[in-house]
Write a protein that binds this DNA or RNA. Sequence first.
DNA 1: CTGAAAGCGCTAACAA
DNA 2: TTGTTAGCGCTTTCAG
Lengths: 336, 336
Amino acid sequence: MKKRILISDIAKALGISVTTVSFILNDKAKEKRISEALTKRVLDYVKKVGYKPNELAKSLRTGKTKILGLIIEDISNPFFGNIARLIESKVYEQGYRIIYCSTNNDVEKAKELIQMFYDRQVDGFIITPSDGLEDTVKQLQQNNIPVVLFDRYFPDLETDYVGADNFQGAFDASNHLCQQGYRRIGFVSLYSDQTQMKERSDGYMKAMDNNKQQSFIQKIQMDASDEEAMESLREFICENRLDAVLFSTNYLAISGLKASKKFNFTMPAVIAFDDHTVFKLVEPSITVVSQPIKDIAENLINILLLRLQGKIKATRRMVLPCELKVRESTKVKVTS
Amino acid sequence: MKKRILISDIAKALGISVTTVSFILNDKAKEKRISEALTKRVLDYVKKVGYKPNELAKSLRTGKTKILGLIIEDISNPFFGNIARLIESKVYEQGYRIIYCSTNNDVEKAKELIQMFYDRQVDGFIITPSDGLEDTVKQLQQNNIPVVLFDRYFPDLETDYVGADNFQGAFDASNHLCQQGYRRIGFVSLYSDQTQMKERSDGYMKAMDNNKQQSFIQKIQMDASDEEAMESLREFICENRLDAVLFSTNYLAISGLKASKKFNFTMPAVIAFDDHTVFKLVEPSITVVSQPIKDIAENLINILLLRLQGKIKATRRMVLPCELKVRESTKVKVTS
DNA sequence: CTGAAAGCGCTAACAA
DNA sequence: TTGTTAGCGCTTTCAG
């Protein structure tokens, strides 16, 4: 926490010019053919006095902030929270920093956030886009700011993207339910055009078709309160006498669990998309479709960093496999 | 997302000097006795073209970044996560931004983080200090960087602080357990000298003494794995035939729940410090001591902002009351 | 009231 | 190989 020392201080102390120091500090020593001896002398001195360049001045000069903007749906959802954490630590090693914000699926807020990050000159973006954010993303691209989308994408816009195989995940989960002997299998989703929801829905329906089962689909308003969601779910499950339900997100499943507790009805077999601490602790524990969080995070930043270095030209879309973690909630059905 | 416009652009467009524009933009119009008409003309133009000052340049010049550093124990713990969110939005209105990082109670990491934030010239800090961070905090103060601590503090260091009334919270919880008829009441804590743990422990013991009950205290290593914690808890609860347990943190309680599930023993009456989604959903739902998160967040930033404006001289220590939320886990004991 | 100009600390042409 | 110096965009002192 010693007082701040400047590049000019070290130049003076060593009796050389700031240019030389700057070159050495920026790994341009050999390129500029600066003697090894001098280089070492400077580096040693720098380490000794613990010099740290003023990042503000650097950014102002170079136009690069080494800061990445992460725009996600909800940081308090462990799925996103974990991805954020992984991204943060990964990117840290590369000398980048992350700033993040939640949109809570509100387009206006998302636009505002992106504008703010843009004003703050972040070097690049990782975004879980809400409906209606297509134009904003396009503008970013036109301004030459690298953007990589995740969790969902815009079919009509060429963008880098990393996400899970939602179709397969939902398909496998639904099939599993059929194989365990369930016959009245519902699917709970959101009123949203986001691709991941569409894909999960398609996966569910495909499985129902393959197994010659009827489909029961309930959608919830994205801005519904917990109470409203619970009420809809109670009705959906009870009125249809469902014996199994696939929830398309972890928080919908949690609302379902709360509903069964509040309205005192027995929860049928349950599978949730995305894991959560709750699912392991609840009785019975809940089977989940788990996304490959680590892979997603790694690919996300790999792609973004490559873009930043201009080492990539074609857009990349990566789809990673999900894993079905079977737990107690989907035991073989006991026919009464 | 229009192209960036500079203060000189607007000066040129309006045929005046940058100084004038700068004064107006920084609310120094009347102080510098600039005509109302001109002021309005400039403001209108600025709004029209959507000018946003370059924050980097501003910070470089003024030495103020308008960024606050938030160093917390674990962002993925909803207690801290919620506080972080509240602080973020509150502070946003005042034109400040937050950058945050988790220490996971690792002193070295905390020191590193603080150094990094200091290098990045944050204007002030909010910190949940880990053991051993006293000197670092002292140095910050000596460098005239405002710091306000929360959740715990250093008894020997004069610092601003905001936290809950841990003693009272633990005392009330323990008393409640006694009143419900429990007799073998355990307390689970951490091997740590942090003040909040000490206070909770004191509250528990005081209640045990008042009720003439024996104390059972189990401490867990802070760096223990989940498995180790579960094993210790199983042993503690089963061997002592406890009929009630007060957990000093939410994640310890969660480990307890996991243990009871894994080792298949019946959980006695439970109270946890700090609420969590899990506690409402689990069967039976868990009684908790809930900290006044909103109050804590508000006071934290109020104090920090006052400090930043130099409007405060004496250090402030605020202790806010906790609330006991009684749920199913602490029903009146049925004597067998 | 308003303008010119000096920096904040750093990078990188351009010279030497 | 190395030094001089012009900015990056903004605030603020000092002169009008």
